[in-house]
Design a protein around this nucleic acid. Structure first.
Lengths: 219, 219
DNA sequence: CTGAATCTGACAGCAACCTGAAACTTTCTT
DNA sequence: AAGAAAGTTTCAGGTTGCTGTCAGATTCAG
């Protein structure tokens, strides 16, 4: 269970993170919206804890953007007492719950556990990658609920991407994933398989970075 | 970060251990499965590097046993080139990644770092440079939260600056970063790319030092 | 003010990439 | 064992947008 905490108050952020980690959650803590955007791209999270007043923008707008882009990620917002009206706006914008600062840490844990429980229909080996649901162990992929069948090579390639989510993979790195080490390949096999994966999984699932390689991200 | 290396080839084992230790990992190196079992009982490890052909049994079976007993420990398997089919079996048995011998030590380090990162739950590390957020592994840059796309050459140049923050880079130094060693260039290509970077990343991000070169600072 | 260094918009050429289809290989079925 | 089906690799033609160069504008040092 991995959480992303966006909170610019040092003391509070640290306390919340430590408390959650003690409970066994994996927690990433950032202080800016831009950083949060970053994390969300390269890592699949199960829950977002979002302060509404941040140095580089409004958490509320950020949340709206998230929802607009189709992110179903559970969100708990953190607001100061004098921003209570934001609470309403927050819930409207698609938050799942809220906490008014200063809040009790046990209260916080309870809310997190509640939201987590509500959402954890499937115990975690499932990865949610945009419209894809991936079960790595079972080698199964659902796209918008529909099963997608991959051949051996297609799967090997896909797996390489998933195991290095968000990172740019060079051609030679991908070749290593498809063919055990140093097996020279002359033609454009990689491109052909990229093309097939896109056909099966959706165009936007793999980005091309001309002259550099390819990248799969969470969104 | 403590690793257990199970490898019966002396030379290879030594090289891998030394390399990893230089990178700051704590490494225990054993040559037998029985010894590995022992270590695992008495010490908590963060990662297991496992050869599949060992004098006292099959690493594959060992891995299966581990998984059956509920061990979630990350595992990278090492296979010889002619045991490719084991790679599939290994991944099925619950390995997280594989390396085909003979492998490049840098490649090995990269895989170890990747697996370690994946399990430690950290997202890619990112840099904050003024109004820029940089994720080197993902080759992603956010400028005030907005994604900025760089071409291959632009990125190479940018990377050179980031890797020498605050230092003055001469023209010939930059040429070496863009073109593999000593490729003479006559026209003002460098200036053109500097210009393109400034357009995308902001004027002030790279300073000109007339007659000397260019510099990027932390700001 | 003058010359040299640097900046930047424009552009032709071409390498990188995409993709449908054909040739070939492996696996399955009868 | 032979044929069918599925998977893999290669090839070729079409497209995209990066790259290096130049020329004219601009900045800077003396």
């Amino acid at each position: 269970m991995r959480l992303l905490l966006v909170e610019d108050t040092r003391g509070l952020g640290e306390a919340v993170r430590d408390q959650l980690q003690e409970e066994g959650y994996a927690v990433d803590w950032v202080e800016r919206i831009s950083a949060a955007r970053h994390c969300l791209r390269s890592t699949p999270y199960d829950l977002l804890l979002l302060d509404l007043m941040l140095p580089d923008g409004s958490g509320l707008e950020f949340l709206q953007q998230l929802r607009k882009s189709g992110q179903a990620l559970p969100v708990i917002i953190l607001t100061a007492r004098d921003q209570i009206s934001d609470r309403i706006a927050g819930l409207n914008a698609g938050a799942d719950d809220y906490l008014v600062k200063p809040f009790d840490l046990d209260e916080m844990l309870a809310r997190v556990a509640a939201v987590a429980r509500r959402y954890s229909g499937n115990p975690n080996p499932y990865l949610q990658l945009g419209e894809l649901e991936v079960d790595l162990a079972a080698r199964r992929i659902l796209r918008q609920g529909q099963a997608v069948e991959l051949s051996a090579r297609e799967w090997a390639l896909f797996e390489a991407f998933v195991q290095h989510l968000g990172q740019v993979l060079t051609r030679s790195r991908l070749e290593d994933a498809l063919y055990a080490f140093g097996a020279e390949i002359e033609s454009n096999t990689i491109e052909v398989y990229i093309s097939r994966l896109r056909k099966k999984l959706g165009k936007s699932c793999i980005e091309t970075l001309r002259g550099m390689g390819y990248r799969m991200s969470v969104k």
